[in-house]
Simulated scan of single mutants.
Amino acid sequence: MSQRMNLLTEKNGGLFIPFITAGDPSAEATVEIALMLEEAGADLLELGIPYSDPLADGPTIQEASKRALESGITLEGAMKLVPIMRERGLTIPVVVFTYFNPLLQYGEERFTRVASEMGIDGILVPDIPYEESEELTNLCAENELALISLVAPTSKARIQKIAKRAQGFLYCVSSLGVTGERKKIDERVYEFLQTVKTSSPVPVAVGFGISSSEQVKEMHSHADGVIVGSALVSEIAKHKDALKDEKNRKDALLQLKTFVTSLISS
Score class of each variant (00 low, 15 high):
Leu15His: 04
Ala68Cys: 01
Glu109Trp: 09
Leu44Arg: 08
Ser266Ala: 13
Ala146Val: 10
Ser133His: 07
Ala231Arg: 01
Lys257Glu: 13
Asp127Ser: 01
Ala22Asp: 04
Val189Ser: 09
Gln215His: 02
Ser155Ile: 00
Pro129Ala: 04
Lys197Tyr: 00
Ala27Asp: 14
Leu45Arg: 11
Lys156Trp: 07
Asp121Phe: 04
Leu103Asn: 05
Thr179Cys: 08
Ser234Ala: 15
Gly168Met: 03
Pro201Phe: 09
Asn138Arg: 13
Tyr130Ala: 05
Ala27His: 11
Leu90Thr: 08
Ser230Tyr: 01
Arg110Pro: 04
Val260Lys: 11
Ser71Leu: 00
Glu32Phe: 05
Ala27Pro: 08
Glu142Met: 11
Arg249Leu: 10
Ala56Glu: 03
Val114Thr: 07
Lys247Ile: 14
Ser266Asp: 14
Glu46Val: 04
Ser71Thr: 08
Ser149Phe: 14
Lys161Leu: 10
Phe100His: 12
Ile159Glu: 10
Lys240Asn: 14
Pro59His: 07
Arg188Trp: 05
Ile227Pro: 03
Glu109Phe: 06
Asn248Ala: 15
Arg88Met: 13
Phe111His: 12
Gly13Asn: 03
Gly14Cys: 00
Glu76Gly: 00
Lys184Val: 15
Gly77Val: 03
Ile20Asp: 03
Gly58Ile: 13
Thr21Arg: 04
Arg110Gln: 13
Ala78Tyr: 02
Ala27Lys: 12
Asp251Trp: 11
Ile264Glu: 08
Arg88Thr: 04
Ser234Cys: 09
Gly229Met: 06
Thr195Phe: 05
Glu235Trp: 02
Ile162Trp: 05
Phe111Asn: 11
Ala205Arg: 03
Ala27Arg: 14
Asn6Thr: 15
Asp43Trp: 01
Asn6Arg: 15
Lys11Tyr: 08
Ile148Asp: 13
Gly225Ala: 09
Pro201Gln: 03
Leu81Asn: 05
Gln255Ser: 14
Arg86Gly: 10
Glu39Val: 02
Tyr171Trp: 11
Val95Trp: 02
Gly48Cys: 11
Glu38Ala: 10
His220Cys: 03
Arg165Trp: 03
Lys183Val: 13
Ala40Leu: 06
Met79Ser: 08
Phe16Thr: 06
Ala166Glu: 00
His220Arg: 14
Leu256Gly: 06
Ser2His: 11
Glu28Tyr: 06
Leu47Lys: 12
Pro201Gly: 00
Glu63Ile: 09
Gly41Asp: 02
Gly48Asn: 02
Ser199Trp: 10
